[in-house]
Design a protein around this nucleic acid. Structure first.
Lengths: 311, 311
DNA sequence: CGACATCCATGCCGTCAGGTTATGGATGCA
DNA sequence: TGCATCCATAACCTGACGGCATGGATGTCG
C-alpha cells in the first residue's frame, strides 16, 4: 500500500515525456525498468494510469488525477529534505554555499572574508558544482545558498540578489587564427564548433552558446560536451572548439594553450546569490546575503575600496 | 537521494513512540529492521535524527525539523493516492461504499435502492470491513464513502452526516443467567467478560465496551478479541463473554445460542455516512449522501413506514 | 509489399536491499 | 549480582529491481 516517491518521480517523468523510452533515459534507467515501475505503480493503486499505444504513453483519467497531485507530493518531500538538512547544518554551525565554476570568481574570497567577520563562530563550506547541477545543490537542499550565473533553471522558485555583471569573452585555443586578435565580433564565431555544457541543463547550456545571438539558419555546432572547468579548458586547448566565458575567467582560468579575447555582439552576464524562500527568516543566510552585497559593493579590490550603498 | 515515503512513515512512528521497539511492533516489522531504516534515512539526509540513549530515541534539532514536515508529506501522498483511486472508480462507473459490520443494517438496502434510481448507470460496490479497519477503507482511498458507527477515529478529517440513532442492547450466550430477562441494567454486566474489538481500534473498541459507563474501580474484563461478526457471534455463543450491539443487530444477527436483551444505562449509538472532503463537489458522492438521508428519512420499514424527522 | 523504425512488453539472470532471528553491549533497577 | 530494557550488530535468506536481449505491434517509406 505504500507509494514510494521514487515511483512518483518516474511517473511524473513518463507523464511529461509521454514516452517511456525518453523518460527512461532522462531518469538514467533502462526502458524495461521503467515499464516495470509504472506497472507496479498501477498495481499499487489498482488503476490504469496510461493508455499504451504506438504513439507512446497517454494519461488516463486517473492518471491525470495523479499527475495533478504529484507535484504537491514531490514538493512536500523536497521541502522536508531541504529543511532537515538545513537544520542539520545550523546545528553543526556550518553554512554551506554552492557555486558553479567561474560564478563569483574573485568576489568569492571577499564574500567569505566579510561573512567571517559577521559570524565568527560559523564555518563556510564552499561546494563547487558541476554544470549539470545548475542550482549548485540548492534544489535538493545540499546547500543553504548558491552563487550562480543568471538566469538559472527554476530561478523563479528561489530568492535571488544580483551581485555583479561583466562582459562575456571568447575562449579560444591559442593556435586558433583569431586567438591573437585584440577584439572580435561574435559573428566571426558562428561557424566555430563550441564546447557546451551537458544538454540536460537546458537554458543554461543555450545561454553559454549564445543561441539568441545567432541567426536561425546558422545553428550552433557542438565540438564537445563537458561538465567541469578542467575538462572544458582541456577541450578548448586541444582544439575541439571555442567557448564563451565571463571576463573574469581570463584571470581565474588562464593557462597555456588557451586565449581569451573580448567579443562584441553578445549580452553581458550576471552573477547572483540565491537561496530558498524557506530561509528568508534564517539570520545566517540573511547575513550571508548581506556579505555578498557588501563585498561586491566594495569592489573586487577588497579593503582599499570605498563602501558603497548596499540594500 | 530519494527519500521513500515508507522511511518517513517509519520515522514518524519512531518519533512518536520515542522508542524503537514499540514503534517496530506498531509497524509490524522487527526492531533491527527499523534500526536499519532509521540509519538509512539518516545517511540519506546526512543528518543525525535521533539521540540514542538508554531511555529511547529522542529527536535532535534536524529530527524535529523533519518531524514537523513529515505530516505534510504523508498527507500529500495519501491525498494523491485517494484521488487517483477515486478517479479510477469514477471512470469505471463504480461507487465503492465501505461499511462496518452492523453499521447501517436494514437501512443499507433502502439506500442502495434509492441510489440505483438516481444513478441507473452506476454500480454500487459494497465492501464490508473488519473492525480493525475503523474507517472501512475511507482513510486509504479504498472507498468513496462509508457507513460507520459514530464516533470513529479521525472523524474530524471527514464529512459526516448522521443517519439514524438506535439503542444499544446486550448480546448474551443463550445459556447465560440474564439471557431470559426482558430488560437489564448495564451495571449487571460490570463483572462479565466482554468480547472486544482489536485494541488497535482505540476509541471504537472502548465505545463498544462502554468504558465510560463503568466506575474506575471496575475495569472491563476481556473474554476474547474478535475482528469479524461471525467470530464475534461464535465467541458469544461459546460463552467466552458478552457484548453490546446496536438494537438492529437483534434482527440482523439472530442465531441460535445468542440472545439479545435491551439494556439501560448506556448511551444510544448513531450511524453516519462519511466521505472525504475532496469529494465535496463529486456529484456521485453527493447523490449517494442524498440517498442515505432520503432512505432513513423514509424510515427503515420501507414504503409502508411513515416519514420521520431526520437529523 | 516488404524492410525498417519506433515503442512498449517479456524472459532471464545477477545483485543487493531489506527483512528475520539470534546475540551482544550498555545501563538502570531490585 | 542478576534481571530487564533498549538499541546495535552479525549472519543469513528471500525477493525486489535493474540490465540485457528479444519479441510483438504498428506506422512509414522506398
Amino acid at each position: 500500500m505504500d507509494v514510494d516517491s521514487r515511483l512518483l518521480r518516474s511517473f511524473a517523468a513518463v507523464a511529461e515525456e509521454g514516452n517511456l523510452t525518453r523518460a527512461a533515459e532522462r531518469l538514467y534507467v533502462s526502458q524495461p525498468a521503467l515499464t516495470k515501475q509504472i506497472k507496479q505503480l498501477e498495481q499499487l493503486l489498482g488503476v490504469r494510469l496510461f493508455t499504451r499505444s504506438r504513439a507512446g504513453m497517454a494519461l488516463t483519467g486517473p492518471g491525470r488525477a495523479l499527475a495533478a497531485r504529484t507535484p504537491d507530493v514531490l514538493a512536500a518531500v523536497d521541502t522536508a529534505v531541504r529543511e532537515t538538512r538545513s537544520a542539520g547544518r545550523a546545528e553543526a554551525r556550518v553554512l554551506r554555499v554552492g557555486f558553479l565554476a567561474s560564478a563569483a570568481n574573485e568576489a568569492t574570497q571577499d564574500i567569505v572574508a566579510d561573512f567571517g567577520r559577521r559570524r565568527p563562530g560559523l564555518r563556510v563550506e564552499l561546494r563547487q558544482a558541476a554544470w549539470s547541477n545548475p542550482t549548485a545543490g540548492l534544489a535538493d537542499g545540499e546547500v543553504d545558498a548558491a552563487l550562480l550565473r543568471l538566469p538559472f533553471p527554476g530561478q523563479d522558485t528561489y530568492r535571488v540578489e544580483v551581485l555583479l555583471t561583466e562582459e562575456r569573452v571568447a575562449v579560444l585555443p591559442s593556435t586558433h587564427a583569431l586567438a591573437g586578435r585584440a577584439r572580435l565580433d561574435f559573428r566571426e564565431l558562428w561557424d566555430e564548433p563550441f564546447i557546451a555544457a551537458p544538454p540536460t541543463t537546458g537554458p543554461f547550456c543555450d545561454y553559454w552558446l549564445a543561441v539568441e545571438a545567432r541567426p536561425a539558419d546558422r545553428p550552433v555546432k557542438i565540438g564537445a560536451v563537458t561538465d567541469q572547468p578542467d575538462e572544458w579548458l582541456s577541450a578548448i586547448a586541444n582544439g575541439y572548439g571555442v567557448a564563451l566565458a565571463p571576463a573574469s575567467a581570463a584571470r581565474f582560468y588562464a593557462r597555456p594553450g588557451v586565449s581569451y579575447v573580448p567579443v562584441d555582439g553578445v549580452a553581458p552576464t550576471s552573477v547572483g546569490v540565491a537561496w530558498a524562500p524557506a530561509d528568508d527568516e534564517n539570520p545566517v543566510v540573511r547575513d550571508f546575503v548581506r556579505s555578498c552585497l557588501r563585498a561586491v559593493g566594495e569592489g573586487p579590490a577588497g579593503p582599499t575600496g570605498s563602501p558603497t550603498t548596499g540594500p
